[in-house]
Simulated assay, not measured.
Amino acid sequence: MTTKEVLMNLPKKVSPDAIEGVNTLFHFNLDGDDGENVTVGIKDGVAYSQEGLEGEPTCVVRAKSDNLMKILKGDMNPMMAVLTGKLKISNQGEMLKYAKLFGLM
């Protein structure tokens, strides 16, 4: 499975009850072999993902595609990735808040 496929499937992991009244928008800017831009959001209690970058994000995540995949699989420590610059997050508070909802923690 590619990093893009993982991101596109994130909304399937979200419980509708957990996101009622929630609105957020993430942009994932990925570089690398299967690098892609993906928007993942929650609006009016509905989680969605789409190819490309749409809307004004509350959080932008930048990484090489293979590094993000390592983080998602648990093969790379996300804190160390941030500290070493392999993962850049524009709004870490927002990411932490929603990482559990999206099944990333």
Rank of each mutant, 00 (worst) to 15 (best):
76 M>F: 10
63 A>F: 10
67 N>Y: 02
46 V>Y: 04
76 M>A: 13
40 V>G: 00
38 V>Q: 00
21 G>I: 15
50 Q>A: 06
68 L>K: 09
24 T>W: 00
28 F>A: 12
56 E>I: 09
70 K>L: 08
53 L>M: 12
52 G>R: 00
24 T>M: 10
55 G>K: 06
68 L>A: 07
74 G>P: 09
43 K>Y: 05
50 Q>H: 02
66 D>C: 07
68 L>I: 14
38 V>L: 05
36 E>D: 10
23 N>W: 00
56 E>H: 03
39 T>M: 06
65 S>Y: 04
64 K>W: 08
75 D>A: 10
52 G>S: 09
76 M>W: 03
33 D>C: 01
69 M>N: 07
26 F>H: 05
63 A>R: 11
67 N>K: 07
60 V>S: 03
32 G>S: 08
34 D>Q: 10
76 M>E: 15
66 D>R: 05
71 I>W: 01
54 E>S: 11
28 F>G: 12
42 I>E: 01
33 D>P: 02
34 D>V: 00
38 V>R: 01
51 E>C: 02
35 G>H: 04
69 M>A: 05
32 G>Q: 06
54 E>G: 03
67 N>T: 13
52 G>V: 01
47 A>G: 08
64 K>M: 11
39 T>W: 03
65 S>W: 10
24 T>S: 06
45 G>P: 11
32 G>H: 13
56 E>Q: 10
30 L>I: 01
51 E>R: 03
58 T>Q: 10
24 T>I: 08
31 D>A: 11
53 L>Q: 09
42 I>K: 00
34 D>I: 00
64 K>R: 15
61 V>R: 05
76 M>S: 12
24 T>D: 02
35 G>M: 09
25 L>S: 01
23 N>V: 15
19 I>N: 10
47 A>N: 15
66 D>L: 05
35 G>W: 02
43 K>T: 14
22 V>C: 04
48 Y>S: 14
50 Q>R: 02
17 D>C: 02
17 D>Y: 01
63 A>G: 07
61 V>A: 04
56 E>G: 05
21 G>L: 13
18 A>C: 12
45 G>W: 03
45 G>H: 07
39 T>Y: 01
17 D>P: 08
40 V>W: 05
74 G>R: 06
77 N>P: 11
40 V>S: 00
72 L>Y: 02
73 K>N: 09
36 E>Q: 07
56 E>P: 06
55 G>P: 12
74 G>H: 05
17 D>H: 03
76 M>G: 02
46 V>N: 06
53 L>C: 14
30 L>D: 13
25 L>V: 01
53 L>N: 07
66 D>M: 03
23 N>M: 06
77 N>D: 14
59 C>E: 11
54 E>I: 10
34 D>T: 00
74 G>M: 09
72 L>R: 01
22 V>E: 11
49 S>Q: 11
77 N>M: 06
